[in-house]
Design a protein around this nucleic acid. Structure first.
Length: 324
DNA sequence: AAGATTTGCAACCGCCTTTCG
DNA sequence: CCGAAAGGCGGTTGCAAATCT
């Protein structure tokens, strides 16, 4: 029954390929074609398993492979296709002539992913990073009422979605909430009013907290400082996000439309753990064209608003019909 | 100049699907 | 039709090169 074993792993070489091995593989495939990968190594005189040979050929030795840096157009194409397909590297590679799935995957992980993170975009969902928006909402709502600190509890419940700095700050604030809610809110207000975020924590109201909370105070100071360093106001978060994260008077945006952004104080009050979990912004799975969003009316408005920020056009040259 | 840290990428690993005896 | 190997794919690792301190 079945086939003979692919290869007994004994005595087969692993690790980087030598030029001599490459030459043997190239010569054999050019003369005979790959044929059966299982039997190829023996015929080609290689001490490798067929799988390793196939990988070496498809990812490196194939003559039609385009090497060198990715062009801007290629990069944009990868981002657009990834937003549709997710981590389907082979499918993406099929639409980028001369590029391999492995190369695209590596390029994504080392360049594009980091770039998107720097600009405040979740590389998984291609949406604004939820943690930045959420923390900004919390800090802003703390200005309005001390009661809003209750949202910290919700924030901690969503820890799987948060970055470590956000969690650290939320944890510290929550610990303070019970002890000195007024001081916490007062301190947050000072931070948000201070344009350069270089808050003197020794002189801030936090320093007036009881001595037994000295360690917590240090934690709060450092956490807030680190958060401020990555806040939307100071980082490379896209300008459209920074605009939407600024508190508005009268609940209207720059165009005079009713605000539908997270920062809207009324919406902030309604943002809890459940909404965090149900929103596609926090989905750990890649978006695809058939994604169904959970839409309460408020979330529908927010989704619409946010999706407008990330509209892009698929080039006509890209055939994505089979994904729709 | 040297050691430490970060970055980039080739290659491996393991799982899933397809193919074949 | 069944079961095992081949093929394919995405995630992860290890190491050399580059950069920083």
């Amino acid at each position: 029954m079945g086939r003979a074993p692919c290869c007994d792993q004994n005595g087969l070489k692993k690790g980087p390929w030598t030029p001599e091995e490459d030459l043997k593989l190239i010569n054999y495939i050019e003369a005979h074609g790959p044929g059966n990968w299982r039997t190829l190594p023996k015929k080609a005189g290689l001490q490798r398993c067929g799988k390793s040979c196939r990988l070496r050929w498809t990812n490196y030795l194939r003559p039609d492979i385009k090497r060198g840096r990715f062009s801007f157009e290629e990069e944009e194409t990868i981002i657009q296709l990834h937003s549709i397909m997710g981590n389907k590297w082979s499918a993406i590679a099929a639409r980028l002539p001369g590029r391999t799935d492995n190369e695209i995957k590596n390029y994504w992980n080392t360049h594009i992913r980091k770039r998107l993170l720097r600009t405040g975009i979740d590389p998984v969902t291609h949406a604004p990073r939820l943690d930045l928006l959420e923390m900004s909402s919390i800090l802003t709502s703390a200005l309005m009422t001390n009661r809003s600190l209750l949202h910290l509890q919700s924030l901690l419940g969503a820890q799987a979605l948060m970055n470590p700095e956000t969690l650290k700050l939320a944890t510290t604030l929550l610990a303070f909430k019970n002890e000195s809610p007024d001081l916490v809110a007062q301190n947050l207000q000072q931070i948000l009013q201070d344009g350069n975020h270089q808050v003197d924590f020794q002189a801030s109201p936090v320093s007036q907290m009881p001595t037994q909370t000295a360690n917590m105070r240090e934690g709060l100071s450092s956490n807030i400082a680190s958060m401020c360093c990555s806040s939307p106001v100071e980082t490379s978060l896209p300008s459209y996000l920074c605009e939407n994260l600024k508190p508005r008077e009268n609940g209207v945006d720059l165009q005079g439309n009713p605000m539908q952004c997270l920062i809207n104080n009324e919406n902030v009050q309604n943002i809890g753990y459940e909404s965090v979990l149900s929103t596609p912004l926090s989905s750990p799975t890649p978006l695809n064209s058939s994604s169904t969003y959970v839409n309460s009316s408020a979330e529908e408005e927010r989704d619409t608003h946010c999706s407008d920020l990330f509209k892009f056009e698929i080039p006509e040259s890209l055939d994505i019909s089979d994904f729709l």
